[in-house]
Amino acid sequence: MSAALQYFLAGLGIGGIYALVAIGFHIMWSSAKAVNFAHGDTLMLGAVLTIVFLDHGIAMPLAILLSIGVAIVFGVLLERVAIRPFADHAASIGWMLTTIAIGIMLESYATIEFGAFARPLPSPGVDKPIIIFGAGVFIQELLIPFVAVLIVVLLGLFQRRTQLGRAMRAVAFNRVAAGIVGINVLHVAMFSFALASALGGLAGILVAPVIQASATMGLLLGIKGFAVAIIGGITSAPGVVIAGLLYGIIEKFVDGYISTAAREAVGFSLVIVVLMLFPQGLFGRRELVKV
């Protein structure tokens, strides 16, 4: 019993990480029908920069703000350089490859400057585990899924209550129509990438105390986060968070009751099966062909 609870709690923590990454993919996709394939590296940027700023004697709150600021600049530049010139092409190869290229460069540069070793990011959330019915969990691990859910709620409010948020929804629904009614689609896309990158940087800072910051921390998180976003239905923010949490929990139960070895094969087979049954993802909106 306590073992099952332990797997559940650990899975919730890991699933929260996937959910945070997936929200970023959702925001980018909604505005541009393209994503930063190297979004995992945005997390790396947030986490690694925070440590670098701390190394330079900058206080933690300021270091966090500065890192998120850099992440926002990165997101805006990336949208301008790697997404926008390739967004017109129906085939999605262009932006996939440009963003992968930027990810490779970022990761390589970070390896050289920051070093290949993982480093800790101190946080009171990982000082001591709390014990629930014999299962241990760090506060930080519970904080991550909580923040993921909170972001979805806030995002929903933002998209309903503000002018900019409503514009985001309009663009997500139909880019062309949104442009016709006078919404500046390019501004919305830029804002969405800035927002996604800010949340990505924040996610990196949140998860680093648990998984450690390193130049290569982003790759696997990015791939899994994207897979999770797709099976959740990338057009639905609550959908990707639910899928992320479920995926993390399933992984831990596979670890615990089947074997650590089977985890990726089982997980990614599940991805394929879900997509076969729900081509638009579990909670995604079906797009109608019109001729």
């Binding site: 994503v35 994207f226 897979a227 087979s269 394929i272």
Partner: peptide
């Protein structure tokens, strides 16, 4: 899957296949 799955969704299916 291409019978039902398209575009970037298909890319994810192929990524998943490679990883499996």
């Amino acid at each position: 899957p291409t019978v039902r799955v398209r575009g970037v969704y298909l890319a994810v299916v192929t990524i998943a296949f490679g990883i499996i």
